[in-house]
Amino acid sequence: MVNLRTTRRSAGFTLIELLVVLAIVATLLALSLPRYAQSVDVAKERVLVENLRTTRDAIDKFYADTTRYPESLEELVERRYLRALPMDPVLENDKAWRIIPPSNDRKGQVGDLKSTAEGQTLDGRPFNEL
Protein backbone atom coordinates (compact mmCIF):
# COMPACT_ATOMS: atom_id res chain seq x y z
CA MET A 1 0.00 0.00 0.00
CA VAL A 2 1.24 3.51 -0.89
CA ASN A 3 1.82 5.91 1.92
CA LEU A 4 -0.31 9.01 1.15
CA ARG A 5 1.60 11.19 3.56
CA THR A 6 4.94 10.91 1.70
CA THR A 7 3.23 11.22 -1.69
CA ARG A 8 1.62 14.52 -0.77
CA ARG A 9 4.85 15.97 0.63
CA SER A 10 6.91 15.21 -2.43
CA ALA A 11 4.26 16.58 -4.78
CA GLY A 12 4.73 20.29 -3.93
CA PHE A 13 6.81 22.95 -2.23
CA THR A 14 6.64 23.94 1.38
CA LEU A 15 5.85 27.45 2.48
CA ILE A 16 9.42 27.96 3.68
CA GLU A 17 10.84 26.97 0.30
CA LEU A 18 8.54 29.44 -1.45
CA LEU A 19 9.49 32.22 0.98
CA VAL A 20 13.20 31.59 0.39
CA VAL A 21 12.71 31.81 -3.38
CA LEU A 22 10.67 35.01 -3.02
CA ALA A 23 13.37 36.53 -0.80
CA ILE A 24 16.04 35.74 -3.40
CA VAL A 25 13.94 37.25 -6.20
CA ALA A 26 13.25 40.38 -4.10
CA THR A 27 16.97 40.80 -3.40
CA LEU A 28 17.84 40.51 -7.09
CA LEU A 29 15.16 43.06 -7.98
CA ALA A 30 16.40 45.46 -5.31
CA LEU A 31 19.89 45.25 -6.79
CA SER A 32 18.86 45.64 -10.43
CA LEU A 33 16.12 48.30 -10.36
CA PRO A 34 18.38 51.31 -9.64
CA ARG A 35 20.63 50.36 -12.55
CA TYR A 36 17.61 49.96 -14.81
CA ALA A 37 16.20 53.36 -13.83
CA GLN A 38 19.56 55.04 -14.47
CA SER A 39 19.91 53.36 -17.86
CA VAL A 40 16.45 54.66 -18.85
CA ASP A 41 17.50 58.21 -17.88
CA VAL A 42 20.74 57.91 -19.86
CA ALA A 43 18.83 56.66 -22.90
CA LYS A 44 16.37 59.58 -22.72
CA GLU A 45 19.24 62.06 -22.56
CA ARG A 46 20.96 60.51 -25.55
CA VAL A 47 17.77 60.49 -27.60
CA LEU A 48 17.11 64.14 -26.70
CA VAL A 49 20.61 65.17 -27.80
CA GLU A 50 20.30 63.20 -31.03
CA ASN A 51 16.83 64.61 -31.82
CA LEU A 52 18.13 68.15 -31.26
CA ARG A 53 21.16 67.49 -33.46
CA THR A 54 19.07 65.99 -36.28
CA THR A 55 16.48 68.78 -36.19
CA ARG A 56 19.14 71.51 -36.11
CA ASP A 57 20.82 69.86 -39.08
CA ALA A 58 17.48 69.83 -40.94
CA ILE A 59 16.98 73.54 -40.16
CA ASP A 60 20.45 74.30 -41.54
CA LYS A 61 19.81 72.29 -44.71
CA PHE A 62 16.45 74.02 -45.17
CA TYR A 63 18.18 77.40 -44.88
CA ALA A 64 20.91 76.37 -47.32
CA ASP A 65 18.29 75.25 -49.86
CA THR A 66 15.81 78.13 -49.53
CA THR A 67 17.86 81.01 -48.04
CA ARG A 68 15.24 81.40 -45.34
CA TYR A 69 14.38 79.62 -42.11
CA PRO A 70 11.23 77.48 -41.80
CA GLU A 71 8.04 79.03 -40.45
CA SER A 72 7.40 76.00 -38.22
CA LEU A 73 8.69 72.54 -37.44
CA GLU A 74 5.74 71.17 -39.39
CA GLU A 75 7.14 72.82 -42.52
CA LEU A 76 10.30 70.73 -42.14
CA VAL A 77 8.11 67.62 -42.13
CA GLU A 78 5.95 68.79 -45.04
CA ARG A 79 9.03 69.56 -47.14
CA ARG A 80 10.56 66.20 -46.13
CA TYR A 81 13.57 67.52 -44.26
CA LEU A 82 12.29 65.45 -41.31
CA ARG A 83 10.18 62.30 -41.37
CA ALA A 84 8.19 63.34 -38.31
CA LEU A 85 8.20 66.00 -35.65
CA PRO A 86 11.03 65.36 -33.20
CA MET A 87 10.03 63.87 -29.86
CA ASP A 88 11.28 65.25 -26.57
CA PRO A 89 11.82 61.97 -24.70
CA VAL A 90 12.10 63.66 -21.31
CA LEU A 91 8.63 65.21 -21.65
CA GLU A 92 7.38 62.45 -23.98
CA ASN A 93 5.88 65.10 -26.23
CA ASP A 94 6.56 66.39 -29.75
CA LYS A 95 4.90 69.79 -29.24
CA ALA A 96 6.77 71.05 -26.15
CA TRP A 97 9.78 72.56 -27.90
CA ARG A 98 10.89 76.13 -27.30
CA ILE A 99 11.33 77.67 -30.75
CA ILE A 100 14.07 80.27 -31.03
CA PRO A 101 13.70 82.69 -33.96
CA PRO A 102 16.67 83.38 -36.22
CA SER A 103 18.86 86.36 -35.50
CA ASN A 104 19.75 89.31 -37.73
CA ASP A 105 16.25 89.86 -39.18
CA ARG A 106 16.39 86.77 -41.36
CA LYS A 107 13.18 85.38 -42.84
CA GLY A 108 11.40 82.54 -41.06
CA GLN A 109 10.42 81.66 -37.51
CA VAL A 110 12.54 78.63 -36.55
CA GLY A 111 16.24 79.33 -36.15
CA ASP A 112 16.83 76.82 -33.36
CA LEU A 113 14.92 74.78 -30.81
CA LYS A 114 15.46 73.77 -27.22
CA SER A 115 13.79 71.43 -24.78
CA THR A 116 11.35 72.87 -22.25
CA ALA A 117 11.98 70.02 -19.81
CA GLU A 118 12.82 70.91 -16.23
CA GLY A 119 15.77 69.33 -14.50
CA GLN A 120 19.26 68.41 -15.55
CA THR A 121 21.23 65.72 -17.26
CA LEU A 122 23.26 63.26 -15.24
CA ASP A 123 26.35 65.43 -15.74
CA GLY A 124 24.58 68.55 -14.40
CA ARG A 125 23.63 70.45 -17.56
CA PRO A 126 20.05 71.79 -17.68
CA PHE A 127 17.85 70.12 -20.30
CA ASN A 128 16.73 73.50 -21.63
CA GLU A 129 20.32 74.47 -22.49
CA LEU A 130 21.25 71.47 -24.63
Rank of each mutant, 00 (worst) to 15 (best):
G111C: 06
L29F: 15
D112Q: 10
D123I: 06
V20L: 06
A23N: 05
L28I: 15
A23I: 09
N51H: 14
N51I: 06
A30V: 13
L113K: 05
R8V: 15
V77L: 01
P89W: 11
L33V: 15
L113C: 07
A11C: 03
K114P: 02
V49L: 13
T66H: 08
F127H: 08
P70K: 02
G119P: 08
P101H: 07
V47I: 14
P126G: 04
R80E: 14
L15Y: 12
P102E: 04
L22M: 12
F127Q: 02
R79Y: 02
T121N: 00
L31E: 07
L76M: 03
A37H: 14
T121A: 00
F13L: 11
V90Y: 10
V90M: 08
S32C: 04
E71M: 10
G124I: 04
E92Q: 14
D60I: 06
W97T: 15
P101Q: 06
L33K: 04
R56M: 06
R8C: 03
R46S: 11
R80N: 12
S115D: 05
R98Q: 05
L91M: 11
G12D: 11
D60S: 13
R80W: 05
G111V: 10
V49G: 02
S39K: 02
F127R: 01
R53D: 08
M87Y: 11
E92R: 10
L91S: 09
R106E: 15
L85A: 12
K61Q: 09
E17S: 09
T27M: 04
P89C: 07
V20D: 02
A11L: 13
A23C: 12
E118A: 14
G111W: 08
F62W: 02
A64C: 00
L19K: 10
R8P: 02
R68Y: 01
T66M: 01
S39Y: 06
E17H: 08
V49S: 06
F13D: 02
T55R: 08
I100V: 15
K95Y: 05
A84S: 09
K44D: 13
Y63K: 10
R125H: 05
A23Y: 08
K95Q: 12
K107T: 15
L15S: 10
R79F: 03
A117N: 07
